[in-house]
Design a protein around this nucleic acid. Structure first.
Lengths: 216, 216
DNA sequence: GCACCATACTCAAGAAAGTGACTAGTCACA
DNA sequence: TGTGACTAGTCACTTTCTTGAGTATGGTGC
């Protein structure tokens, strides 16, 4: 269970409120873990109860008062232990990829539209992450920063986020193009009916036989 | 809820047993959705009950009998509807990235080791996906296959899987190197104590002030 | 003959995540 | 004054996922 560890890791840079954490873990910006606000508040309460974080109230003037949290020594020890344990493998669960998997059998108009939207969202993240990276390293050259910076963890995960979004944008753009071209060809020739053939039986003409991958 | 849709999409190529699906959705090979065997069997039963897939028993001689499933017209309609609906945004939840986020504060030995292992696993997937892509397109050139192939959905998602693993391998290799070099420098100079400083208070010397990203 | 592996599948329970609300205070604007 | 946005947080319930088992058949190797 790594939400607790993700929260601890995010708190390593100082003191943050639940609301600030919620913004950091928002789906639009999170690059190492995503979590919803209610999850975060519940987790903070648990972490505090377990002594892994310490909270204090901050009285504010024009905003509601807030509680901020920092990692304790016990929290640090927990992270140390987590870091030394075996990591779970990562994997993808993505609606849009399911739709692309089914693209030969469904109307591609909405899928293409969603690919375009996803590419645009990825582009926005790319720009955001680029700016965050600049803020983190300041005037320092990246290689120098990675060699000598005091705190590079967030920079490294941001690099992964950036690379992920770049790959994703490129794929979306390419696949939208592929599908658009196929649609254009289908408009020219009545290949559309053949393409929407019932999936029975499995082996379609002209196609290499589908073999499910053997387990590595 | 996309597990049902992921299963429907995977069944579009013919008839498959629960066991075959389980292999396709295994964490080591799945590139659009991951699911565990028990999930898949339960989902197949539900889908069958709902009329979205049809099952039949296959009597085998040297292996246990099995049930295989195919998508029905109602299942196809369900996929059509799903494809036209709004997709949920995708995001990452990765233990190893949490560990990298915390890398400045924990022992990096195990993290580096895990990065190396992840890079090797990614490399294996890259080779596997490369081979799968070759099998799918046969002797046809990729561009030609994408233009004219009868069933390209699995090819397109495999392309995403490949790109993802390539980016991930490259990142792992690079970050392991960065951390190794920092450790080597730390071995020379007693910067290690400073690097393990308590995270209180937030602003560490020489580092640009950390600002959590504003919501886009 | 037993252990292991592959094929083929099932069950129970708990943990984690998601959905869909909700509360309260302050500020800006029409 | 009402509305919307932002800050700051909470609750109840449902759904999904994970954990940790388990069953059965047949083949192979020691």
């Amino acid at each position: 269970m790594a939400l607790r560890h993700a929260v601890l890791a995010a708190l390593l840079d100082g003191e943050y409120s639940g609301y600030q954490l919620a913004k950091a873990f928002d789906v639009g910006v999170a690059n190492f873990w995503h979590a919803l606000p209610q999850q975060l508040y519940v987790e903070l309460a648990r972490l505090e109860k377990d002594g892994l974080v310490a909270g204090r109230q901050v009285v504010q003037e024009t905003r509601p008062n807030k509680r901020v949290f920092r990692v304790t020594e016990a929290g640090l020890a927990e992270l140390e232990q987590f870091a030394a344990a075996v990591s779970k493998p990562s994997f993808i669960r993505d609606d849009l990829l399911v739709k692309v998997q089914a693209a030969d059998h469904v109307g591609t108009g909405p899928v293409i539209e969603q690919l375009d939207e996803r590419a645009a969202a990825a582009q926005a993240k790319i720009e955001l992450f680029g700016e965050l990276l600049r803020q983190m390293r300041g005037d320092v050259d990246e290689e120098e920063f990675l060699r000598r910076g005091d705190r590079i963890g967030p920079y490294l995960t941001c690099l992964r986020g950036l690379a992920f979004e770049q790959g994703h944008r490129d794929w979306c753009v390419r696949i939208a193009d592929v599908l658009r071209q196929r649609d254009a060809q289908a408009g020219i020739a009545p290949a559309q009916a053949a393409r929407k053939a019932t999936p029975l039986p499995g082996v379609l003409p002209g196609r290499a036989p589908r073999t499910l991958p053997r387990q590595p």
